[in-house]
Design a protein around this nucleic acid. Structure first.
Lengths: 168, 168
DNA sequence: ACCGAATCTAACGTCGGCGTAAACTTTAGG
DNA sequence: CCTAAAGTTTACGCCGACGTTAGATTCGGT
């Protein structure tokens, strides 16, 4: 009656790579570094990536491009979180003490990441303010050009409204 | 009567490097790439950096670290702005047409930078939201641990309040 | 004038993050 | 079953962004 396969359609390496805009080589390289192992394989041994894998991959890229971590640091971050995730599935893996330690470590990573993101947001906000100020100066220069067409010889226009200086 | 020298105290390469947290080699490298030339030199030919140079250097680092440009792209950005700055000091350098073109180019660069910063801010905001959601989950797990001290054997606690799952 | 610390130029070294080539195997459609 | 397209492993290549070393030169305080 129900011939709908509910198997999550895992992606081949090329499809996965296209989805996040990287190369196959990059995926294999991440696997080599222990960052991202496909959670499935075909009978013949080909990599099959689940949606969860894709999510992890996106995460890696965000840490790389947005926050500027190198792949080693990203590995540490991800593994810290992986360990904590194991607490849920493997209740027996560690004693209460170990679980507390893992949680603390994950919280620590999370705190540092949030702090880093915050400072980055602040710096970006400053930069944006400067860019907009500069855009404003550009507009006034453009306005000055409008009302004085065809002016190109030096020595003139020295004591006029003095449009805001352009460079920083 | 007035022996106060008002000369802007230009910095030596080591001092300049320390100020922005880079190495001397990095400064010489940037100069080699045409990104940052010290605006002064000592009699013997040693580099002397003004405060303006420092500002430019900071700018380079921001474009590199915050926005992720490579040094070639940064060069294009800076030179575009440099050209526009010349319009102010060299009225004769280009005809009205050329000046308009330069302004347009600078405005174009500015627009693209602002757009890029905006999208980066948006992505960072999303990331921050995820990090805070995760922090919230951590807190609930920690709370669960508090009210159940010394629980470490498996098979138990299966049907209790079910603290939010930890991993993403 | 002297001398240790800082700079100079020139050149080679390094390392991360993949790109690319080669030779072989799996996959999937007709 | 056949075959083109996609995937696999192994290994070398490459480039950007500096680090480092060497030997000569300059700076600045006494």
């Amino acid at each position: 009656m129900n011939d709908e396969e509910q198997a999550p359609p895992s992606l081949r390496i090329g499809e996965a790579a296209d989805r996040v805009g990287v190369s196959c080589r990059t995926l294999r390289y991440y696997e080599e570094l222990g960052l991202l192992a496909p959670s499935q394989h075909s009978a013949g041994g080909a990599r099959r990536y689940t949606e969860g894998d894709i999510g992890r991959l996106v995460r890696i890229r965000e840490l790389q491009e947005l926050l500027g971590f190198d792949l080693g640091e990203i590995g540490e971050i991800l593994h810290g979180e992986d360990q904590l995730a194991d607490i849920r599935s493997q209740y027996h893996a560690a004693g209460t003490k170990g679980r507390r330690a893992m949680l603390e470590r994950a919280v620590d990573i999370n705190d540092r990441l949030r702090s880093l993101v915050r400072t980055k947001q602040e710096r970006l906000a400053e930069m944006m303010a400067e860019l907009e100020a500069k855009a404003q100066r550009y507009r006034s220069v453009a306005a000055e050009m409008e009302e004085q067409p065809g002016r190109s010889d030096p020595g003139a226009g020295r004591e006029r409204p003095q449009a805001a200086p352009v460079s920083r």
